[in-house]
Design a protein around this nucleic acid. Sequence first.
DNA 1: CTGAAAGCGCTTACAG
DNA 2: CTGAAAGCGCTTACAG
Lengths: 336, 336
Amino acid sequence: MRRVTVSAQDVADLAGVSRAAVSRTFTPGASVSAETRAKVHAAADRLGYHVNHLARGLIRSETGLVALIASEINTPYRAKLLAALTMRLQEAGKVALLINTDRSDDSVEQALRRAISYRTDAAVVLSGMPPLSLAETCLQYGMRLVLINRDELRPGSLRISLDEQGAGRQAFSVLVAAGCRRLALATSKAGTPSLTGREAGFLAAARDAGLQPVVEARGLTNYQTGLDIGTNLMTRTDRPDGIFCTTDQIACGVLDAVRHRFNVEVPRQLSLIGFDDIAQAEWESYNLTTFRQPVEEIADEAVRWLATDAQNPVGTVCPHAKLIWRGTVRQGGKPA
Amino acid sequence: MRRVTVSAQDVADLAGVSRAAVSRTFTPGASVSAETRAKVHAAADRLGYHVNHLARGLIRSETGLVALIASEINTPYRAKLLAALTMRLQEAGKVALLINTDRSDDSVEQALRRAISYRTDAAVVLSGMPPLSLAETCLQYGMRLVLINRDELRPGSLRISLDEQGAGRQAFSVLVAAGCRRLALATSKAGTPSLTGREAGFLAAARDAGLQPVVEARGLTNYQTGLDIGTNLMTRTDRPDGIFCTTDQIACGVLDAVRHRFNVEVPRQLSLIGFDDIAQAEWESYNLTTFRQPVEEIADEAVRWLATDAQNPVGTVCPHAKLIWRGTVRQGGKPA
DNA sequence: CTGAAAGCGCTTACAG
DNA sequence: CTGAAAGCGCTTACAG
């Protein structure tokens, strides 16, 4: 089939006006008489005309495109964040270019290059870290960079990072306040900034208190890992009575292992805290006490900066991960 | 900050070649001498040059952009499908424009208009249905349309739809073979093509067998709905002993209600089948027998057609939803 | 308010 | 293999 594309010129011809008039009609705020506008709209509708944003993006300094760079997008937490981000972006009149990566920095670099190729107004990085030189190329092309839960910063970029360490510390205090004495940390081997932050905070607080939790770090950041860790932990002679899981998925796995394979009662015999507050954390089988990722707030912060004229971001902004009390921590942990 | 964008001309100047030579260097298959190519690459790297795909898209008949139009993208099944789709798309050298919609047809129309504005090579619709006239506009702009699990067809579009009715019928036979006598259907009020197909198949098979299942249809397609339905069903004097849930999320809700609120044993006292095979279906707390959505196959089919020169799609292709046997259906249901 | 003209960054016949 | 030139569809000063 031949591509029979209709251009502003076609609309102008049909409406009996100039190409410029057509352009102005579709540019909010441009000065066109009501009459001209009406003629143009009529012609455009009849022809099925849609402004070519590619051509527009060639001229204006904005394309309306924003790249979202992330790995494992079908993971509950990622999907939630992505949903919030795409929503906010659309409300701001932008559209999301979703670029999948694996966990390697190399694939992040490829993703960012694609973003540059399409001259996206910004790139939001949820996974991996772009090399410094490429970040500078982005800057040079006028792109804005938003780094979510990354540990480093890049010049001219906005970094949105939770206080992971603080959350890890809080997890420790809560478990101790709940009467737990034999603590454990359940995490994966992924070593992402978010995870290591939570781990570090938990361990540091324990050290300060003169305690040394059992650390189980294995596999990928998923349910299966939780299952493995739970099984391992319960096989020990000194079973822990308080576990901080760096992720809800891991927590769900630990919970299932502990309950179904060892008949341990939660929270009577074991208290457990997760992180993320994925949808399943609220499901009755888990009813997990966990830290809520402030995804809406993260998305808001990101899009707010993109929608602003301010060239220089504030540097780092830290939304708060709030502890959501549900049923996996024994009474006593919760303050009055 | 001024946008200091580097163009092919800049690279050409630095490399001492023509603009056309630069263009050819970045066009796979174009004829350039090794020497020229090397000079161009050197200059491009030094300048941080990236071909402007917007400008390229203006000239070529392809932009490399494909729109993914979907609602509720943070739902386990949707996220899974979206992940598969974006992956395949990238492997085929395309990049996904993710456009969020609510369930209304109007928002699908808006989404499709955005896709047209960016001259995407194709639009993959996972939610809602584009009006016929707009579908024709897409065709006119040379866009391809892929409709996933939609009930209608659009001219020139590819439709990928499971045999929902067949699955519904199979669910019925399996429950009956497992010895269930009082059947129920648990579904939402969403009324999407997938859901109504499953419902219709199940009910038709029951009718053929002279049975009349209890039908519980309420709320949105989510966990909470399952919880409500499970509670309602167990409050009846004639509790069902076999339930087909049109979605895994609903099934998980039903399971939790039934077990935790009524102490019903699954599958001893009640058999239950879901649909989708979301990650949680495999979690030990659920261990749900369910139909697996062939997401990889769906993504393959979609991308295969997009990557092809064939203008006319086959019409409808029907990947098979396979029943995954796990622990929520009593022995007897499963064939040897 | 309106139109003619220049220009955004590219690709692609067309000659050589 | 290579370059000069035309053109993709738009927007935006610039005059009027």
